[in-house]
């Protein structure tokens, strides 16, 4: 039997969970800085640091220009995808929703493919002006374009129909897939290779410019997402009841869509299509801490960052000195977990 004092104590539990997850993220980050193709280890570097010796240019290059931006990018992408998943699951009131279903990923894919295949047709001068970031830029615009289109299609008279958005997202993904098919048909061998890698998702192209381009956007989306917790909790009782307890439902839906599109769009732009993070991470958090979005959103950000960082470590060591695209690692680990989630569900898909 629960007494009043048990319930008053409850808020300290999420705080503890967040501490644990933050500690796990630090450990994952250390592991990520430790491993790589080059024989540079943190312990050796720490030893040098203690003895007051300077790092060699090579060591500095590997740590500062290769491993750190990669770590930062993995953490950003992981946090962004996981939080987007948690937001969309709350919005659609379905624990199986995923950034992939609202067309954000499909739009990003179409943008990226357009840039890869048609980018070659652009005059070199135009291409140079994009600083070699044409593909991420196009992917980002594609994600946003898709989301805004969906949002427009599903909003009538100031009210957004979440069900329409879900179905229109499926249609849009199919359309993007068909267009992508045409482009793939036109592509040459090198472009096909680029495309395949982009589709599998990868952190291999990590660089500070990419981190600086996506970082503020993901950070902004995550920050805004943390204010959605109460509203998404209320939405679990349906839109009408959420409004009856005082939530401005239309504003909540708009904010949720914008946050998810910004975080997913930025993640897809720099790392390609990385699957399963958005579904599996929020589910694991719900198992550990329950469905309260005020806990779920920050915890998903931390766990998403941690798991993607670890997946990247696996991607780098498992076939060293080569590396796997990280999307393969998340799919191999995530798909079975996803199936397990499906089979565990009591009430079917309703």
């Amino acid at each position: 039997m629960a007494s009043l004092s048990d319930i008053a104590l409850a808020p300290s539990r999420p705080a503890r969970l967040h501490l644990w997850l933050a500690a796990a993220l630090v450990l994952a980050a250390l592991a990520s800085l430790q491993v790589g193709a080059a024989d540079v280890t943190l312990s050796a570097l720490a030893g040098k640091f203690m003895r007051g010796e300077a790092l060699s240019p090579l060591e500095r290059l590997i740590l500062w220009d290769i491993r750190l931006p990669r770590l930062a990018m993995g953490a950003l992408v992981g946090a962004g995808l996981a939080v987007s998943g948690a937001i969309l699951q709350g919005l659609f009131r379905n624990p199986l929703a995923d950034p992939g279903i609202v067309g954000v990923t499909a739009g990003g894919m179409l943008g990226a493919i357009l840039a890869i295949v048609l980018g070659g047709l652009l005059p070199a001068a135009h291409l140079a002006r994009t600083g070699g970031q044409l593909v991420p830029l196009a992917a980002f615009l594609g994600s946003w374009g898709a989301t805004l289109l969906l949002y427009r299609v599903s909003t009538r008279g100031g009210r957004t129909s979440v069900a329409t958005m879900l179905l229109a997202g499926i249609a849009l993904a199919a359309l993007a897939g068909a267009l992508a098919g045409i482009l793939i048909y036109m592509a040459d061998d090198q472009q096909l290779r680029d495309l395949t890698f982009w589709n599998m998702g990868s952190l291999a192209g990590a660089s500070w410019p990419k981190v600086l381009a996506a970082g503020p956007l993901v950070a902004l989306a995550l920050g805004a997402a943390m204010t959605l917790g109460r509203g998404l909790n209320g939405l679990a009782m349906g839109e009408a009841t959420a409004a009856h307890i005082g939530i401005n439902v239309q504003r909540l839906k708009t904010a949720a869509v914008l946050c998810a599109a910004a975080a997913t769009g930025a993640a897809v732009a720099i790392a390609g299509a990385i699957g399963f993070v958005g579904i599996v991470v929020p589910h694991l958090v719900r198992l550990a801490a329950g469905p309260d979005h005020r806990t779920l959103l920050p915890a998903s950000a931390l766990l998403g960052a941690t798991l993607l960082t670890l997946a990247d470590v696996i991607a780098r060591v498992i076939v060293a000195p080569a590396e796997l695209p990280i999307g393969i690692v998340t799919a191999v680990l995530g798909a079975p977990v996803f199936l397990w989630i499906l089979l565990r569900r009591k009430g079917g898909l309703a």
Partner: peptide, 15 residues
């Protein structure tokens, strides 16, 4: 939609 503990459901009334 999500399986909250009973007391949390009641607490949503306080928003």
């Amino acid at each position: 939609a999500f399986d909250f503990p009973v007391i949390e459901v009641v607490r949503m009334g306080l928003q």
